[in-house]
Design a protein around this nucleic acid. Sequence first.
DNA 1: CGGAGGATTGAACCTTATCAATCTCAGTGG
DNA 2: CCACTGAGATTGATAAGGTTCAATCCTCCG
Lengths: 254, 254
Amino acid sequence: MPTSHAHILSQILRKLELRGALDDADRGAFLALPLHRRMVEPNVYMVREGDRPDYASVILGGFAFRQKVTEAGARQIVSVHIVGDFIDLEGTLLNIADHSVQALTRCDMAFIPRQAIRDLVLSHPRLGLAMWVDTLIDGSVFREWIANVGRRDGTARIAHIICELGRRLEIAGLARADGFTLPLTQEQLGDATGMTTVHVNRVLKSLAQRGLIRRVRRDLSIPDWEGLRSTAGFSDAYLHFDQVARGVRPDRSL
Amino acid sequence: MPTSHAHILSQILRKLELRGALDDADRGAFLALPLHRRMVEPNVYMVREGDRPDYASVILGGFAFRQKVTEAGARQIVSVHIVGDFIDLEGTLLNIADHSVQALTRCDMAFIPRQAIRDLVLSHPRLGLAMWVDTLIDGSVFREWIANVGRRDGTARIAHIICELGRRLEIAGLARADGFTLPLTQEQLGDATGMTTVHVNRVLKSLAQRGLIRRVRRDLSIPDWEGLRSTAGFSDAYLHFDQVARGVRPDRSL
DNA sequence: CGGAGGATTGAACCTTATCAATCTCAGTGG
DNA sequence: CCACTGAGATTGATAAGGTTCAATCCTCCG
């Protein structure tokens, strides 16, 4: 790992700058943040429900997800995270974690002490604002997921999560021209959409039959983006790319 | 309305103080915030999806809710708000509203200009932190709702929303000793839980038959809190009352 | 070559949606 | 003071979307 801490932080900073104007003092303070880097193996917990987390973290590589487990034992994935996403910023300010965070694939992670972020934000309020924006966008995605799970049928739900992931991966520069590789197994796809594995499988097959996706295991290509978009009822407004990336193309792509 | 602006703001401030330590300068600045007060009739929109809101608001009296409408036309209520809740803090920092906010009952509202909040937060970062906590708790509730709609059956879903509302109303001092009045019609209850009105009605009846609730139209009493709690799989950890109200009783009540 | 995790398939079953009335009650106007 | 009205609540019958259970089949990997 030849990359220095300052280098890692400057990558994160670049994204944060898109969420709010910063000055040199802000940048300097951010780059001076203490952090440690660690590889996290798939399925390993980074935060456990009930924990009192000491660190916030950022994904430098790989995928992670957040989940809740019902008292009855059912699992619900509440978000999926990709490179550049802050994870558990809530751990900075809330006391007890209300959900768990797990690595989906092998993850390259940067951990920043909770107290360091608090101090930073108090001394550099513009950085606080930028992180607050991050939290707000998170919230917007959660709202869309409530609607997705609550008011769309199985087909639309799966189509929707594919659209969301596709669009986010594209913005992050992680998608191929024609599609991308799903970071989730069908079981996890089910846990994210409130469906059973069996039904996920059938829906995927039917989407393929209708020519909306082409798929070999987890490898997706999307020959008919508009078709997929419209069966999903997807619009990327809720991802607030206008505050995430400059000059983003309008809603459509791949 | 004999209450002065400063008086109104001091009520809001009291709640904010629970979310983060403030000093006298913070308090002074907050109390100097410009605001206007207005009554909003039931079903009137306070924010419309697609708007670029200029104001954040706080409920001084009444109930409100937030909703999204699917491209297919289905409605999903994504949160219900009560006295003291900040509404649309996202409007302060995000550009385009990704959802609508509507009055559920007649609402007494305080509107604060978006720019005033931005300025306040930049000059008084501790206030920013406190509001950020508010947003984080919002997010926690959204996550629970995803799990509710995604992984609980109809009975548990309805039981869960009843538990949540009951507990929040209790904390806000708005519940009777034995229960409370549901602020939602059965149709709205369905829109919040991803169910049809018909099924909501049947579930409510069955909850009553099992002795978990007693109900006359919207008037609820809860003779067996533990029974209701356990069929809901409810735990109030996700409401983060430890950061909302001091000395809150542990999870159980009414 | 043997495993193991993941994907796929079939059949039976069940929860929840749909459709279509009907009923209740609080509020309004005469 | 009562009939009228309309929103919301309730009920029944039927259909559909999704689950459950139980195999079977890949395919990557040591």
